[in-house]
């Protein structure tokens, strides 16, 4: 005879991912590497901007690497490698986002020593929905919005914009040509995440890249000050 009863469990559906992400963050802290998760819709210019960022960092004598997620092909890793920085492709095989276990598996496969790096950039799969739910152990999540996409993107994808720490407006060099409404874009970003730091960037002209990288350097410094034990290990 069946006796229905209620079994309380109270468990997070993504608890495995969250736990692994926490372990990754501890590993990143111990290695002294600052990790940034870059998210955007497809075609917002993640790879183009990242290539310029990697080049700038390299010229400043800093070591930065990139893990790049795509549904298929290793074209982006090849493109990023042109900057001279180490890059490793994660082909998700149809998965629309990266998960923490993919990061830890691919770090092992890549075989780099994290403590050799100042920065690690994770270029997520181009998608403004699914990546929002998955912590990858990053220190900072940056969402990109290109001037060609429409200023209301933050309102259409509030979860992603709200879960991100910084907004990067990309392709600002063509803002005038596409009649980008700067005021509307800022209003919408601030509506979804009040106080969100926003940078205007161009991979083509390099505009805004230094300001964004200076911001990252400050954040990285703050992390090291907050966790001095990470420095000594």
């Amino acid at each position: 005879m069946n006796n229905p009863r209620i079994l309380e469990i109270r468990r997070g559906v993504l608890e495995k991912n969250d736990l692994l992400a926490q372990q990754l963050r501890t590993r990143f802290n111990e290695a002294g590497v600052y990790v940034v998760n870059l998210v955007s819709s497809p075609g917002a210019g993640k790879t183009a901007l990242l290539e310029v960022m990697l080049r700038h960092l390299r010229e400043s004598g800093l070591n930065a690497g990139a893990l790049v997620g795509d549904l298929a092909t290793d074209n982006d890793a090849k493109r990023l490698a042109r900057s001279g920085a180490p890059a490793h492709q994660i082909e998700t095989g149809g998965n629309c986002h990266l998960e923490a276990d993919m990061i830890s598996d691919h770090l092992a496969e890549w075989g780099i020593d994290l403590s050799d790096f100042d920065y690690l950039f994770i270029e997520n799969v181009g998608n403004l929905v699914c990546p929002a739910s998955y912590d990858l152990g990053e220190h900072l999540r940056a969402v990109m919005l290109s001037v060609t996409e429409g200023e209301d993107k933050p309102l259409k994808y509030p979860t992603m914009f709200n879960s991100s720490d910084v907004a990067l407006i990309t392709k600002i060099d063509i803002a005038e040509a596409v009649e980008f409404d700067r005021k509307a874009a800022y209003t919408n970003i601030q509506a979804i995440r009040p106080g969100m730091v926003t940078f205007e960037t161009s991979a083509k002209t390099g505009r805004g890249v230094d300001a964004w990288l200076s911001y990252l350097a400050e954040r990285r410094e703050a992390l090291h000050t907050a966790a001095p034990e990470a420095e000594s290990s």
């Binding site: 079994l7 309380e8 559906v13």
Partner: peptide, 13 residues
């Protein structure tokens, strides 16, 4: 995104 509880059937009373 949390599983609160399950309504289960026991095999035995």
């Amino acid at each position: 995104l949390e599983i609160l509880s399950l309504e289960i059937d026991d095999e035995q009373p």
